[in-house]
Design a protein around this nucleic acid. Structure first.
Length: 360
DNA sequence: ATCCAGGCGG
DNA sequence: CCGCCGGGAT
């Protein structure tokens, strides 16, 4: 259903941690979406006050219930909240009927409203403030990555079984993701090739094969004993619960043995072409923290786990970057921003990096 | 000898 | 939160 003129679309609750303490939020209506206006409707809770900081201080509006925000403008709202429950907070009004044509012309992306509601992204969001200069930083990393040759460029598990029919391809991607953790890409690739030659890349075949056979074929990937067992279990689960296909939701993928958050997001991205979240590994985790791009909710402390990094990063990074950010930062982490002794001397974005020349 | 790095169990 | 899993690379 496309939005209708003057109909109000309410945006539901903010993520809890955003309103449990004093924080400021950016409300961004990108100029590519001129067909909506947003206004602060109401926040149902005691002990709440509002103030807004716009580019021009004279536009300060003392009435929190009627804060109009122009499309294309960037207005920062400060929300002081003491209680946790927020029922309705923001509404978006369509300025005219939105048609298929608007969508085609990218004048409007109705789904963005939903993203907005959950504080996700797409430029149409409640979120933490994007870090200063993030676009320049990203551009600089791209530039460095285009000249340097990182291991991640040569082979990635996302290329697994590109020639296979969809269902087989998905299983190949899942198997490849499973094997690739803690393992160099060319080793993973070799193991997948051997499985492919033996026709052992379908749930059916894997289920029938001996675990020892699989184990010897995938050697020397990291933890091959456990992975051989997990692969068989996964094959069985695919057969019993998913008709020989792989699970199509994040939650179900996470239930598979040996599949954690990192791989589950990777599989959703690659096998299903369905971006549910950012694939965060230790490189992304480390670099985002060095750049000051993520922090523990409501603080300036570093995030303590890749999962926390993922949630923090998703709050501001535009969704178009969710997939490319991983190979970009992994390669950058392998060649320049290494875990120990990062090569800040050759890094062209060190001027923007709060951690530059601070370690090792 | 030490590091790498995702998932999992304690 | 910590240590282990089991190889390869350096």
């Amino acid at each position: 259903m496309l939005p209708k003129k003057n109909k109000k679309y309410f945006l539901d609750t903010l993520p809890t941690h955003l309103y449990t303490r004093k924080m400021s939020f950016p409300l961004r209506i990108p100029s590519s979406l001129p067909l909506f206006s947003a206004r602060i409707n109401k926040i149902k809770m005691p002990q709440t006050s509002f103030s807004s900081k716009t580019q021009n201080p004279t536009t300060r509006n003392k009435n929190p219930g009627n804060e109009n925000v122009n499309a294309g403008s960037k207005t920062e709202l400060q929300v002081f909240v003491r209680k946790k429950k927020v029922e309705k907070n923001v509404e978006v009004t369509a300025k005219e009927d939105i048609t298929e044509e608007h969508v085609q012309q990218k004048l409007c992306r109705p789904l963005d409203i939903e993203d907005f509601a959950y504080g996700k992204s797409c430029g149409y969001s409640w979120s933490t403030l994007p870090p200063d200069n993030w676009e320049r930083v990203l551009e600089g990393i791209r530039k460095m990555r285009s000249s340097e040759d990182a291991p991640v460029d040569s082979m990635g598990c996302e290329k697994a079984g590109t020639s296979l029919p969809p269902k087989e391809r998905r299983f190949a991607v899942l198997a490849s993701s499973l094997l690739s953790s803690q393992t160099k890409d060319h080793v993973t690739h070799g193991a997948i090739q051997r499985l492919l030659q033996q026709d052992l890349l379908t749930p059916d075949a894997v289920d029938k094969a001996e675990e020892a056979t699989i184990k010897s074929l995938i050697y020397p990937v990291g933890f091959y004993t456990r992975k051989a067992g997990n692969l068989k279990k996964i094959a069985k689960i695919c057969l019993l619960k998913y008709g020989g296909d792989i699970p199509s939701t994040l939650e179900e993928l996470l239930l598979l043995p040996g599949i954690g958050p990192k791989m589950a997001h990777l599989v959703m991205n690659v096998a299903w072409d369905n971006v549910q979240g950012i694939c965060v590994d230790t490189h992304v985790h480390r670099i985002c923290n060095r750049l000051g791009w993520v922090s523990r909710p409501g603080t300036k402390q570093k995030t303590s786990s890749p999962e926390e990094t993922r949630e923090s990063l998703q709050l501001w990074l535009p969704k178009e970057e969710w997939v490319p950010i991983n190979p970009l930062l992994v390669g950058f982490g392998q060649t320049v921003c290494s875990p120990l002794r990062p090569r800040c001397g050759i890094c062209i974005i060190s001027e923007f990096c709060p951690s530059a020349f601070k370690e090792g």
